[in-house]
Nucleic acid binder design. Structure first.
Lengths: 143, 143
DNA sequence: CGGAATCCTGGGAGATACTG
DNA sequence: CAGTATCTCCCAGGATTCCG
């Protein structure tokens, strides 16, 4: 089939892209760090070691699944340590490593930026939306 | 039904959470900024204004849909400007605003961190995986 | 050239229930 | 308390096609 060659070409491009990503691990890491909960966990751990339940309380809206998953990934990446204390109710503490602290600094910077600038962003949105609405109305009646 | 009350309670919590998010717009902004392509676009625009086609070439692997979508969002948020030059082949340039540049600085910091530290992360992963494998084998045969 | 509209799929993410 | 396992749903995002 002729259609196969197109499919094959796309597959090849896909493989080339995957190879590119493999050759650029920093970008995959960048992607991972951009995860929805990563920044929140990192910031939450900024105040020192925290128990699992502390984290789930401090990070509003996180499911235990996503919290566990995020913590596992960060532990694997060497950004935090997981310490199990085998007492009667099991106790697990999470703490940032030096590597994790170095990233936390940067992430906290973004968080601060978001908190400091979101008003500017919102007013920009209002202007944009107002402009869009005006264009829609304008192009509606008048040719 | 008794089951309804459970459902109702969950709905209420859901609404409460949504209200919380609405009351915390900075977090939504943080989420948005964490988007997969946002950082790449921001960094790519660091070298000055770029045409649409320039961006799609510089950002390997981005689809035209996601590039457009990301650019629209960033434009709406006031992070960049979109300039259309109505010449024969239409020309569109994107350029960071001051607000966009301020964020780009921070994002570039994360990118630099990822590039500088990914080796540490990878070796941490290797250690973690080796440990996990050892535990799996150990718990397999010996009780 | 720079998009918009449409269709479709993978997997990210929540809810629930169970375990040590 | 701190998870694990499973099911499901939703939508981010890719492919394709059409437009000015």
């Amino acid at each position: 089939m002729v259609t196969r060659t197109a499919q094959e070409r796309r597959d090849e491009e896909k493989r080339a892209y995957d190879a590119y990503l493999a050759a650029c691990p920093a970008r995959k890491l960048l992607d991972e760090v951009s995860g929805k909960w990563v920044s929140l966990v990192l910031v939450a751990l900024g105040d020192g070691p925290q128990r699992y339940s502390d984290l789930s309380r401090r990070i509003a809206g996180v499911s235990q699944k996503m919290l566990t998953q995020t913590l596992r990934t960060l532990e694997r990446d060497g950004l935090l340590t997981r310490t199990v204390t085998a007492c009667v109710p099991v106790r697990v503490d999470y703490e940032l490593t030096d590597l994790g602290r170095s990233l936390r600094q940067l992430v906290a910077g973004i968080k601060d930026w978001a908190e400091a600038r979101f008003e500017e962003v919102e007013s920009a949105r209002d202007r944009y939306d107002a402009r869009s609405a005006a264009l829609t109305i304008g192009s509606d009646g008048a040719g």
